[in-house]
Design a binder for these strands. Sequence first.
DNA 1: AACCCTCGCAACCGCTCACGA
DNA 2: GTCGTGAGCGGTTGCGAGGGT
Length: 319
Amino acid sequence: MGRQPCCDKVGLKKGPWTAEEDKKLITFILNNGQCCWRAVPKLAGLLRCGKSCRLRWINYLRPDLKRGLLSDFEEKMVIDLHAQLGNRWSKIASHLPGRTDNEIKNHWNTHIKKKLRKMGFDPVTHKPLSATDDDDDQKTNKTKSQTENGTSADQESPVPGTSNDQSMEEDNKSMETSTQSPVFESSIMEVSNGFCTDEVPLIEPHEILVPVSSTPTCSSSDSDNYTAGGGGDFVSSNNVNNNVNGVLEDMEMFLPSLDWQCDSIGDMGFWGDDFITTTLDSLFNSDSNNNIIINNNNNLNQVPLMVSDEESWKLDQLL
DNA sequence: AACCCTCGCAACCGCTCACGA
DNA sequence: GTCGTGAGCGGTTGCGAGGGT
């Protein structure tokens, strides 16, 4: 039938994103949420295809992304999850808050694969390599199995005893019932308890849960996409900042290292007033002591995905 | 200092799948 | 059932950074 290309490639920009493009995209998504990626570049004034915008947002611009190399702990988790899930990078990424499938895939291909081979393990099967195995053999076997099974390399059964279909079907189940290896179980436990010591999150929960002394801004945004919630039931114990500007100053530390060409965080349209009056106000309220309170109600559903994502923020662990 | 090479990461491409109209 | 779209994925490319000569 001939699928329509995702974008009209004529006149569209490719290659690395500029700070200006990033800014446009973030501004648009924070104001309008994630919807219809095909329309995003046009509406946001970008000469990119929707797919490119989506990838840029997911892999680089989301505020909840972590930066830096995966910690040893995260690596172990990736290895363990890979043993169970195979090359389902998205599934694996969903268990690592702030990490993207692309990032994990890259890290796997550039670091973990080598590490495992160095340690004498086959990165595909997670079994010890035989003395005669080398890269060529692995490639040969891989190609062979692909041919025999009629599947791509990513569809190989990750571990003996778990067929692909089974692992697909029972993936979520197995995650919930803690039938993983000891390494994996400990990984989940640590993630549930918070961030790893080696992790460098852009914004950690305690950076957001800050009390303010001034009257917090209520949702007076011109956007209807977000709704300020009513009662809250969580009060932060962090007493670092005492006003909204302080919140912004703290957040500045965790922003993506982009060249915004502006002097202060307050100059940024999207991280400044718009962000405070929409997204943050949707998530937080204040109590009589002017402490910021996380809204634990259904209004969270109206917050953009990157903020309300349970996997990322583990709000359920906090509340 | 200049050149070359390797490595890592961001981004792209092409494809399949799921889902809704 | 068909079509359009977003999401997900594996594979690959391009480029900059860093190290070696």
